[in-house]
Every structure is written in structure tokens, then in C-alpha cells.
Simulated scan of single mutants.
Amino acid sequence: MRKGLAGQRLVAVFIAGMLLLNYPVLSLFDRPLVVFGLPLLHVYLFSVWLGLIGVVAWIVERGAR
């Protein structure tokens, strides 16, 4: 039963990733702003990417127990 729940969570993370990395949301961060010397869009993209990897790793490790 836990594997089914983990699979559902992974699908939810995939859908969240698709929404967060799609045009309407990306256009919100396409501004001429600089954060830590990097463009805001790049900081957003790598932050979301890192967050998605972290959540997937947490789900997979938690499901392995």
C-alpha cells in the first residue's frame, strides 16, 4: 500500500513541476532583477529544480523503509 501512495506522491510532484516550470509562472520571474549576482529567472529555475529533486528524494527514501 505504501508503494501506491509513494507513486501517487511522485505523480503529484511531477504535475507540480510541470506547473512551476511552465510559461505563465516563468513569465512572473522574467524580470531585469539580479539576486546574488544572478538573474532572477535563473535563481528561480534552479531553486525549483533543486526543490523538486529534494522532494522526490524524500518520497523515494521514505517509501523504501
Rank of each mutant, 00 (worst) to 15 (best):
S47E: 02
F14S: 09
A57G: 04
G7D: 06
R62N: 07
P39R: 03
V13H: 01
L21E: 04
V13K: 01
L41F: 08
Y23L: 09
H42Y: 13
V56Y: 04
Y44M: 05
S27K: 14
L19Q: 01
G37W: 02
L40N: 02
V43M: 06
A12R: 14
I15M: 12
L26C: 09
E61L: 14
A16I: 12
K3V: 08
G54P: 01
A6H: 08
Y44H: 08
G17T: 04
G4M: 06
G7Q: 08
F29K: 06
F46H: 05
H42R: 10
L21P: 03
G51P: 10
L50Y: 11
L38T: 10
M18P: 00
G51C: 08
R9G: 12
R2A: 13
I53W: 09
W49K: 09
L20P: 06
L5Y: 12
L21N: 12
F36N: 09
L28D: 02
L19V: 15
G37R: 02
L52I: 14
L20F: 12
V25C: 01
A64E: 13
M1D: 13
V11N: 07
M1N: 10
G51L: 11
A12F: 11
M18G: 15
Y23V: 05
V35L: 15
F46D: 03
M18N: 12
A12T: 11
Q8G: 15
R62Y: 07
L45P: 03
A6E: 11
I15Y: 07
L38D: 02
P24W: 05
H42K: 06
V34Q: 10
V60D: 02
R31H: 05
S47T: 15
Y44C: 06
R2S: 09
G37V: 02
N22Q: 10
N22A: 14
P39K: 01
W49P: 00
A6L: 07
S27Y: 07
L33N: 10
N22T: 12
E61S: 08
S27I: 10
F46P: 00
Y44V: 07
G4N: 09
G63F: 05
G7W: 06
R31F: 03
V60R: 13
G54N: 03
R9I: 02
S47A: 15
I59Y: 11
M1A: 13
L40H: 02
L21M: 15
G63N: 14
G63S: 15
S27A: 13
L50T: 14
A16K: 03
L20H: 04
V43T: 09
I59V: 15
Y23C: 00
R62V: 04
H42W: 14
L50G: 15
